[in-house]
Amino acid sequence: MDTKNMREYLGWLYYQYLLITGIYVLEPWEKSIFNTVLFTMVAMVIYTSYVFVPVHVRLALEFFSGVCGGQHESTMALMN
């Protein structure tokens, strides 16, 4: 019962996607081209972010900790 509801909901979501993007009116091969292109783009965005975001975040963290934390340490050291 639950899986059926879920499937209905997903069907409804896909229908909304068809209507909003306008590909509802397209022929099936055009729909698949659009879906493929969109899927590829989304997949690439996700993959890119998976590969590069952690590196960037780490670098950014290092930079900011270098800017703030480093100064902090040194002033603390001076105080001490």
Binding site: I20, T21, G22, I23, V25, L26, E30, F34
Partner: peptide
């Protein structure tokens, strides 16, 4: 969204 839909249909 309407303009976007027309954009996609125009591309096709």
């Amino acid at each position: 969204l309407t303009y976007m839909g027309y954009g996609i249909l125009t591309i096709f």
